[in-house]
Every structure is written in structure tokens, then in C-alpha cells.
Design a protein around this nucleic acid. Structure first.
Length: 283
DNA sequence: CTCATTTGACCGAT
DNA sequence: ATCGGTCAAATGAG
């Protein structure tokens, strides 16, 4: 039915809306560029998170447009820009009955980010341990965790925790994938950019009770604490855009999200250059 | 009984 | 062949 709508003239409207969205994102980028000095004292213009978010917004629109252009009726071909990990997984798991273990697609090492701490701390998500492995040339085994909601919601977030030092105890946590689960996540994230003139914060407000606040990238974080250490994965879906609001273009920017916080705090475009996104041919 | 963890096996990547 | 990531049966905790 979706296809029918697209095939019967609705597609043009969708394209129009996407074009408009992309245009607005471009305008926003210009605004941030022009007033960038109000955000930072270090000479940089747009805060990294804001810029990354803009990239993601632009990419989202461009991908959608390209997808529509490649799929006039939204059927018969696969999404080109985002490699479908699911298709491979489902091939493996649906067509073949689980008779053999290990029939799975190993994840490509794409977007990962690390965090070191004395204790493998609570990060606001529920994790289930699914493996432990002795790693060559290391003193301590590596522990593998996946999101508890992998089965019920298909959440693909995983993390690896490895002790890297005995005394004082130090653990390295490597996060990979991004949470697509929608429950029991951190309710909000606020990124504050303190400046002399004004502040900019990104508020990711889920309507869940607030657990203890922790540091970057999961809850309230300061920009300078987060930017050096954390590389965020791209979000898997576009619906986080739905809650985008800008309270004041020159002061506070609030992003509301129903999805996981660090999915959106920073985003990364791995294959598409920023300017390419801006200049992507539309038709 | 249910659910999480442990742990050896399996498999993909190199 | 080796290493590392994941699976899933066995086991344990509540």
C-alpha cells in the first residue's frame, strides 16, 4: 500500500518534502557557520556535535531522495547507501533452520568508540553477556555484551569490556553498534556548550525516569569531556529527526528524541563527504 | 521455573 | 592455521 501511494503521485510530494528538508538543513548550517563564534572560544565554528548532526540530517534527506530515485515504486531493489546487514542475517537465520551453530554474519568493524574507566560502569543500558574470550597477548579476558533487547526489539548494540590494567584496575569498554531499543534507556542527554555569550545544549529527552547521570556519551556531558574520546555511530533510522526543535537559533538548541541518546549525540558519515552531501544530485 | 551467566564449539577473517 | 567474535547448551542464581 505504501508502494501504491508512491506509485500514484504521492512520491512527488515525498520528494518535495525531502528537498525542502534538505534545503532547510543547509540554511541551518549556514546560520551556525555565521554565528559559530558564539559557541566556541577555541576558534572552531560549529560545535562538533552540531556539525555532525547537520551532516546526518543532510545525509538522511539525500539518502531518502536517492532511494526514491532509485526505487520509483519502492520495490525490486535494495537500499544502496546503507548496506543491509539484516538481509544477510535474515537469509542465514530464516532460510536455514538453526541446525548449525555459528551461522551468522560477523559484524564489520565500522563505528566503534571506546571508554576507559576504573570500573566497567553502568551506562544506562541493559546488557547481557554472551561471551568471554582470552585475547592473545593480554592478561585479562575480553567480555562480550549485547543489548538485552536484541531479541525482543532487534537492538544491535554490543560492547566489549576488557580489563587492561591490574592496579589500579582499569577497564576499556568498546561500544559498537547503536541502540534501537526504546525502553529502559537513558531518558535524556544534555550537551552543554558553555560560552561567554550564550550556551548551546542538546537535550535528548525520552520520557523515562532518570537514572543516575553518568558521563559521556550516555547522559549529561560536557562538550570538552566528550569530544576527544567518543566517536559515535550513525543512527540506524531517521525517526529521531521527528523531535527536532530549535528553541532559539542563537542560543539554545534542543533536540528531542525518542531514541537512544548516544545514537544522536554525535553522528558520523563514513562514506559520504559533507560537501558531497550538499551537492548531491537530486534527479 | 525463569532468566542471566559461563564456557566450549563453531565459524569468518586474515 | 590462528585469532577473535558469536552461538547455544549447561549451569547457577533468585
Amino acid at each position: 500500500m505504501e508502494n501504491e501511494n508512491l506509485a500514484h503521485g504521492g512520491r512527488g510530494k515525498v520528494v518535495d518534502e525531502l528537498l525542502r528538508g534538505r534545503e532547510l538543513a543547509n540554511k541551518l548550517r549556514n546560520i551556525l557557520n555565521e554565528s559559530g563564534d558564539i559557541y566556541n572560544n577555541d576558534g572552531s565554528t560549529i560545535p562538533p556535535f552540531a556539525e555532525d548532526l547537520l551532516k546526518e540530517v543532510l545525509t538522511t534527506f539525500t539518502n531518502s531522495l536517492l532511494f526514491l530515485n532509485n526505487n520509483p515504486t519502492s520495490e525490486g531493489s535494495d537500499m544502496q547507501l546503507t548496506k543491509s546487514e539484516d538481509s544477510l542475517e535474515s537469509n542465514c537465520k530464516s532460510s536455514i533452520v538453526k541446525e548449525r551453530r555459528g551461522c551468522y554474519k560477523r559484524r564489520k568493524i565500522s563505528q566503534t568508540w571506546e571508554k576507559e574507566s576504573e570500573q566497567p560502569e553502568e551506562d544506562g543500558h541493559q546488557w547481557r553477556k554472551y561471551g568471554q574470550k582470552k585475547i592473545l597477548h593480554t592478561d585479562f579476558p575480553r567480555n562480550y555484551y549485547r543489548c538485552t533487547h536484541k531479541n525482543d526489539q532487534g537492538c544491535k548494540a554490543i560492547k566489549q569490556v576488557q580489563r587492561i590494567q591490574e592496579d589500579p584496575p582499569l577497564h576499556r569498554t568498546t561500544y559498537s553498534g547503536h541502540h534501537t531499543c526504546r525502553i529502559l534507556q537513558n531518558p535524556e542527554i544534555i550537551v552543554d556548550y558553555p560560552t561567554d555569550h550564550s550556551s548551546m545544549f542538546l537535550s535528548f529527552d525520552n520520557s523515562f525516569p532518570t537514572p543516575a547521570k553518568q558521563d559521556c556519551p550516555f547522559l549529561s556531558v560536557k562538550k570538552e569531556e566528550c569530544k576527544e574520546e567518543v566517536v559515535h555511530p550513525p543512527p540506524s533510522s531517521n525517526d529521531y529527526l521527528s523531535g527536532l526543535t530549535f528553541d532559539d537559533p542563537e542560543k539554545d538548541v534542543t533536540l528531542s528524541s525518542t531514541l537512544d541518546s548516544h545514537d544522536h549525540l554525535g553522528v558520523h558519515i563514513s562514506d559520504i563527504m559533507y560537501d558531497d552531501v550538499l551537492n548531491w544530485p537530486l534527479s
